[in-house]
Design a protein around this nucleic acid. Structure first.
Length: 750
DNA sequence: GTGCCTCGAGTTCC
DNA sequence: CTCGAGGCAC
């Protein structure tokens, strides 16, 4: 019956067929999500969905309550809802040897202005190799569980978390709001038993306990999770309505009292020596613990100090992960392939005879760059005893940070007789353009620009990536597909936004394609339309301009607030950027000449000469340039990159076509938090007594202030400690408000 | 000019 | 996650 044309079905047949399709599609969905092994091809899946929709259209009254067409996001790639963490889930800075640990202690003391002998306690605990989870309790009730995700937004796995025995559904005597954070993991014993069971059932087995735990927690059907032996150690917290304790140790004890498992090897240490001793103790017990750990985590014990130390972009300053040495493996280097990145960088990738390293089979590994293969470091000095890496060699592989496979060493004694030194290509393997290495640069880059298909595709992938446009249903795979497409191509970002219109104008519709259906096509168009309105910072990041990452894009967006102001400023600054480049070239020439003639280089003179050469530089251009490089975090390299990109006609035309398709959201003029210093530009000068300079800067920025190094007309506030000199004088001249350290502390409330 | 520190870019496997 | 390099403080 499944072959009968829809318009020939009788009413009774239609009813039976709808039931069959509902069952088929539900099973296909489950198979896709739970076994990671789809039973149906995407095309068959879409065909079934289309048929279901067609029958429903003909017999609307027969539509079932469990109709597959009603299931939102029935497209298999969708999964869990998203949860924005109320307090970011940070990652940890890493240490690989004892010196990194003593440095950590020293760095904290210097940041806090503590003497080397002042008491400073730390905790040390095993770093569990699982996946982190944040549990939110309100009034003692578990209401939400979220994975780490990117630290900002994670996945909602509440139903699955409820099935884990180590996670209490309710707790007594906790603060009204308590977010408990910890690690979900699987013991060695349970992992082995699970794999045996999976193998017997013909299901898929897992490579290691970490993957098994991750796979089990991310089941759409929480009954499957329930059957998986997951465990949980609590080690941290997020949002709290009341403090748990005054120290890390106290807080962990409190979590234990509340009914959570905490790691029994957690210790409080008096300093680096005790921390390292505990590290060795944990390392010695590693094999007999019964679960995987990949290092030891140290934390400043005093929570008030943790608070003062604060965080860098992605890691807190008060914690450190001391990693165990990486596992190593030897294997044969079968080939060296060259990949082309979005900036044109040619990266060599090692194709290896597959080998197990730390529980995972590795068949590819990075070879970093040209020099690394040749056996030289960035300064051209020979490394690894001058061994060059050749195809056919036995190479040592490890997984850096237990993740990224790298080639670490070569065994020359096993080198076959017929090997040749590897010759790094000087032409792009993808487009044949010349690949050049700029002076002092370690990477060779394809000069093809937008002509190079590899660069174009990688740029598009970057454009749709998570921190950029993040278009649902348009990932790396789809981008490649559309790039290669002849009837409905996406060759540049603007093409994404004209996709629907172009599709509508064509006879061969996207929805009729293999792998696509009615629903997936409409979903994609809707997802694209959804992103037409885009915040300026995301747009600037998405453009993929060299040296402009997420942070620089945000800095630029905050400074210029609108696309028009940004583009105008860059265009205006262009002549000055050109002078800058010429001046730096002149400096290089002067340096070389001076070295030859054995005299001191007149660097400043060479620079000034170009800047002041005729024809005179437009003062507006100079002002725009100064304004640009005056932005905190934006220097000459970024500024030049912005100008060159926007001044290139082809590139600019492509950007203009994109901008015409968008509704760009302006940024708020200033961070208007409720803090009295939000949006203000603050300068610190003189010596500060109650805090260090770094600390003061971090605190001010956390409150939304911009901290600058020098006093100018744009400065709103000068915080002057004892010994303030020229800056205080200049502030007085400019009429900038000046306060002392105590005044500052009073202003920010502590 | 030198030495941090942070950001950007590239990378693997599931 | 790491490496290189840009940015900035000293």
């Amino acid at each position: 019956m499944s072959d009968t044309a829809v318009d020939r079905l009788t009413r009774e047949e239609a009813e039976v067929e709808l039931a069959r399709l509902a069952d088929l599609l539900t099973r296909a969905n489950t198979a896709y999500h739970t076994d990671d092994a789809p039973e149906m091809s995407d095309a068959d899946y879409d065909a079934a969905k289309l048929r279901n929709a067609a029958i429903e259209a003909r017999f609307p009254d027969l539509k079932r309550p469990d109709s597959p067409s009603e299931q939102v996001g029935a497209a298999p790639a969708e999964g869990f809802g998203k949860i924005t963490h109320s307090v970011r889930m940070m990652s940890l800075a890493n240490a690989f040897d004892d010196a990194d640990v003593t440095d950590f202690d020293a760095r904290i003391r210097s940041y806090l202005n503590l003497s080397p002998t002042a008491p400073l306690k730390f905790t040390a605990e095993p770093k569990i190799d699982g996946l982190s989870l944040s549990l939110r309790y309100e009034n003692g009730e578990l209401i939400q569980a979220a994975t780490r995700g990117d630290g900002e937004v994670g996945e909602n796995v509440t139903a699955n978390a409820r099935t884990i025995t180590d996670i209490p559904a309710r707790i007594d005597g906790a603060p009204d709001v308590l977010e408990v954070r910890g690690e979900v993991y699987m013991s060695h014993e349970d992992f082995a038993a699970l794999n045996t069971r999976q193998a017997e059932r013909g299901g898929k087995t897992f490579a290691n306990p970490r993957n098994a735990a991750a796979g089990s927690l991310r089941q759409l059907d929480s009954e499957i999770t329930r059957a998986r032996p997951l465990r949980f150690f609590a080690y941290s917290w997020g949002e709290l309505s009341a403090p748990l304790a005054e120290t890390q140790t106290g807080a962990i004890n409190r979590l234990e009292t509340l009914g959570f498992q905490t790691n029994p090897l957690t210790r409080t240490c008096d300093g680096p020596e005790e921390m390292l001793a505990h590290y060795r103790e944990i390392e010695a017990q590693r094999a007999t613990l019964g679960y995987d750990i990949d290092g030891v985590v140290y934390k400043v014990d005093d929570l008030a100090l943790q608070n003062r130390l604060g965080s860098r972009a992605t890691t807190p300053r008060w914690a450190l992960a001391h990693k165990f040495p990486a596992e190593l493996a030897w294997t044969r280097l079968e080939a060296i392939d060259i990949q082309v990145g979005r900036t044109g960088a040619l990266s060599p990738v090692a194709r290896l005879t597959p080998v197990t390293v730390g529980g995972v089979v590795v068949s590819n590994a990075t070879l970093h760059n040209e020099d690394y293969i040749a056996g030289r470091d960035s300064k051209g000095e020979e490394i690894r005893g001058g061994k060059d890496i050749r195809i056919g060699d036995w190479v040592q592989v490890y997984r850096a940070g237990d993740v990224i496979p790298k080639v670490a060493d070569v065994d020359l004694s096993k080198r076959p007789d017929d090997t040749q030194p590897y010759v790094f290509p000087t032409r792009c393997p993808e487009c044949g353009s010349e690949a050049v290495r700029e002076e002092g640069d370690s990477v060779r880059r394809c000069t093809g620009g937008l002509i190079c298909p590899a660069q174009a595709v990688e740029k598009l992938k970057h454009f749709v990536s998570r921190a950029a446009f993040d278009i649902e249903g348009l990932g790396a795979k789809q981008v490649e597909m559309f790039y290669a497409d002849d009837t409905l191509p996406i060759r540049e970002p603007a093409d994404i936004f004209t996709l629907e219109a172009r599709d509508a104008a064509q006879i061969a519709k996207l929805k009729n394609r293999e792998g696509f259906g009615e629903k997936s096509a409409t979903n994609l168009f809707a997802a694209i339309d959804d992103k037409r309105r885009i915040p300026l910072n995301r747009l600037l990041f998405a453009l993929g301009i060299r040296h402009v990452g997420e942070v620089a894009a945000a800095d630029l967006a905050r400074h210029f607030t609108s696309w028009d102001a940004f583009a105008r400023a860059i265009d205006t600054a262009a002549p000055a950027a050109q002078r800058h480049v010429m001046a730096e070239e002149a400096v290089l020439r002067e340096r070389r000449a001076a070295a030859e003639e054995g005299r001191r280089a007149a660097v400043t003179a060479a620079r000034t000469q170009i800047w002041e050469a005729a024809p005179a530089l437009d003062p507006a251009a100079k002002a725009a340039w100064d304004d640009l490089v005056g932005i905190d975090g934006i220097g000459a390299a970024v500024a030049v990159s912005l100008v060159t990109t926007l001044q290139q006609t082809a590139e600019r035309a492509s950007i203009d076509r994109l901008v015409a398709e968008l509704d760009i959201q302006d940024m708020e003029a200033a961070a208007t938090g409720d803090s009295p210093v939000a949006g203000k530009t603050v300068v610190f000068t003189g010596s500060l007594e109650k805090m260090t300079r770094a600390e003061a800067k971090a605190r001010a920025e956390a409150l939304g202030a911009k901290v600058s190094g020098s006093v100018s007309a744009k400065t709103d506030l000068l915080v002057a400690g004892p010994g303030a000199g020229s800056k205080a004088k200049k502030a007085a001249e400019l009429g900038v408000e000046t306060i002392d350290e105590d005044g500052w502390l009073a202003l920010i409330g502590g």
